[in-house]
Design a protein around this nucleic acid. Structure first.
Lengths: 233, 233
DNA sequence: CTAATTATGCACCAGTCACTGCATAAATGG
DNA sequence: CCATTTATGCAGTGACTGGTGCATAATTAG
């Protein structure tokens, strides 16, 4: 409950990207015959569902409905350019699914619960027809020599730093104890969300993920009091 | 503390596999010029560190020090046979790292804490020179059409069912409340461990993972009491 | 020693990989 | 109309993919 509201709000955002904002600042040459933003969105979904390594140029061109030459002219090479742009596109387009409702929460606890529950809804693919799990998480499991792994790592740091910032705010506003180890708590929440991404990939539905979130949040008080004791056990 | 003890115990098990148990039941033909179990171990480590898709036959043969023909003769095709055997080898050889100490615990809580802390030690690569994270978790993030994904899913179900069985035992032995939703709790622990696998892949060291486990276990009492109330919040 | 059996090394297969050269098409600036 | 600029379609690049055929080596059964 409450999740659907924000989901529909985000859905409007999803269907009206800022691609139309710049209608076409076409210079002199022949105009592009396809929608660049739509093509990038298609590529993002493909990378997301199949993984980086398993997605070939042929897969991409077929799904986008364009030729390989056009793909390279518009996005550059697969490794360094296209995938990086897809990651950025993913973050820009879908972060609202996990963060919109959390941003409106008045306490750190409510924000965390909203973040995790909305992640559950998004990861399970129950709200949109989007691939399961977190694209950045899935991509990071691929190769080790991938140069765009840095971009991923940065994104994960973003998730962590956002969580920590929200928890820090909770401490500052008094809904969490002053001596709380906020980084520890943020890392825990981040880890739970990462695990949910994997569980979603392996078939966990929304209710199971919601259940995991409920269990995690049920321990919140004990977690907070223990973390403020500077880490026992 | 306490973790190192079991780690050294497991290390002995690791260095003395049951490969020497069957010295060589060689039939008539030319004897194999390489240690089949050692080669499978090498393949397992490669798949583990690089992922299934990114590991080519050339990578495997080079690391094993054998020719492609010998590889196919000994293990079969990459998709259906080699990778499946590598997964089984992985589970058989390394499950003790996560479960040995948990099996000796007298309560479900102690068993869960041991399972997660030893997973932290193993996933961070701090105890052995092994790739980071859980091989099955990493493999599951790869392709979607992979036939050996069933083998993986079964393995994950094994983790879940073991956790649930241990928690059920705790209920039966009285260290957990009778009306506890054991499946919910087991799914939560499974999700935390999966998240730790991802965090380890992205550079989290042992101390960070241990910290995550401490935070999770700090909420144990609240989790147990909430889960026994049949899922509030 | 011979026959049978199994393993190995080498060359090699068709298919796919990411990627590009080139001629042509379609737009704009003058 | 022309020059310039950009996009497209097609064919094709060398390198690599997983996987094999074949001759040979090394072993055992008789």
């Amino acid at each position: 409950m409450g999740v659907n509201g924000i989901i529909h709000h985000s859905m409007q955002n999803l269907d009206s990207p800022l691609s139309e904002a710049l209608p076409a600042r076409r210079g002199r040459g022949r105009p592009r015959a396809f929608d660049r933003d739509a093509a990038l969105d298609t590529a993002t979904t493909l990378f997301w569902s199949k993984g980086y390594e398993a997605t070939s140029i042929a897969d991409l061109t077929q799904a986008m409905g364009i030729g390989a030459k056009s793909l390279y002219a518009a996005f550059g090479s697969k490794d360094d350019d296209l995938f990086t742009q897809a990651l950025h596109h993913y973050v820009r387009k879908y972060e609202g699914l996990a963060w919109d409702r959390a941003r409106q929460a008045t306490t750190a606890r409510e924000a965390t619960a909203a973040f995790l529950h909305d992640s559950a809804a998004a990861f399970s693919g129950a709200v949109f027809d989007i691939p399961r799990g977190c694209m950045a998480t899935i991509a990071s499991m691929g190769c080790e020599g991938l140069p765009a792994l840095q971009a991923f790592a940065k994104d994960v740091e973003t998730t962590f730093s956002r969580l920590k910032a929200r928890i820090d705010r909770g401490v500052a506003e008094g809904d969490l104890p002053q001596d709380l180890d906020t980084a520890r708590l943020a890392r825990f929440v981040e880890t739970v969300q990462a695990g949910m991404s994997i569980r979603a990939r392996n078939g966990a539905d929304r209710s199971e993920l919601d259940s995991v979130v409920d269990v995690a949040m049920a321990g919140w008080d004990g977690i907070v009091s223990a973390a403020s004791a500077a880490g026992r056990s």
